[in-house]
């Protein structure tokens, strides 16, 4: 009944640093459940992150954890995976870390289809630095650097991942905890680049500036704005206005995985 998260968490690390109502803790729980479901040997698991609130996640987990520089998680993780393909490699981070400064590494890791699972917590803001807008802050919304409303158009992270070549792309939200671990499990089990975007809550810097009176309001909007892919198929464009799709958005099991491809290079080099 009560889930034993504590066996996956380094002793003495709780309570964690995330703000009251921040969704990252919920995602971390989902990741722990997924790693347990996949029976990942934590000695053989690298959890890599960049910089930002979401990127503090690896520090809490008892595994080979690598808290890198802002935006560079996917590139560090590529080095880990290439050097030791037998390791399970999980990347995590936020929307700013992953798609702004980290965008180039994100799209190239997707392009390579290297076997890793990227859990991208999209809370629409740079939380750690106090609430600046990110490439995913909805247009028109407020942030500490868009006091007149965000003029920027934004990324659809999942489309970006699909367009770049990732072969398992899914989305869920912090208000759908069971789906978090289900999708991360499938991502881990998928051989290739798996991107799981979790629409997340930042009540402290995003919620406050965008008319969300409370943490609960933010969680409730995740429930109302999320539309499972299957349900969306039967809905009209108007009905889908302001919504986003959740579940598995794209999966390709044909595209070769990068380390497998490089194993062929080694065979040729040693055979020749």
């Amino acid at each position: 009944m009560a889930y034993d998260y504590e066996k996956s968490i380094r002793p003495g690390k709780l309570p964690h640093i995330w703000c009251p109502g921040c969704g990252h803790g919920i995602v971390m729980k989902g990741l722990i459940r997924a790693m347990d479901t996949c029976e990942l040997d934590r000695k053989n698991t690298a959890i890599v992150s960049g910089i930002g609130c979401a990127s503090r996640l690896p520090g809490y987990l008892d595994a080979c954890t690598l808290h890198t520089a802002h935006g560079r998680a996917a590139a560090f993780a590529t080095g880990v995976k290439m050097a030791k393909p037998e390791m399970n490699v999980i990347c995590c981070g936020g929307d700013g870390d992953g798609t702004a400064i980290g965008g180039n590494h994100f799209i190239h890791a997707c392009r390579r289809n290297i076997d890793m699972t990227y859990v991208l917590m999209n809370n629409y803001i740079y939380g750690m630095t106090g609430g600046q807008f990110s490439p995913c802050t909805p247009t028109g919304h407020n942030a500490s650097t868009t006091p007149y409303g965000n003029p920027d158009p934004i990324f659809d992270i999942s489309k970006l991942a699909i367009g770049s070549g990732a072969t398992f792309v899914a989305r869920t939200t912090a208000a759908h905890p069971r789906e978090i671990d289900k999708l991360i499990t499938q991502g881990i089990q998928h051989k290739g680049m798996a991107v799981i975007e979790v629409i997340d809550d930042c009540p402290t810097t995003y919620g406050r500036r965008n008319k969300f009176r409370s943490v609960v309001d933010m969680m409730k909007r995740l429930k109302t704005e999320a539309v499972p892919v299957k349900a969306a198929a039967k809905m009209t464009a108007e009905q889908l206005e302001g919504k986003f799709l959740t579940g598995i958005l794209f999966q390709d099991t044909e595209k070769p995985e990068y380390c497998d491809q490089y194993a062929e290079v080694i065979k040729k080099a040693q055979g020749a």
Binding site: Y3, H24, G25, R178
Partner: peptide, 8 residues
Amino acid sequence: ELLCPDFA
């Protein structure tokens, strides 16, 4: 338990 972000 699932939705508590703080393991509380």
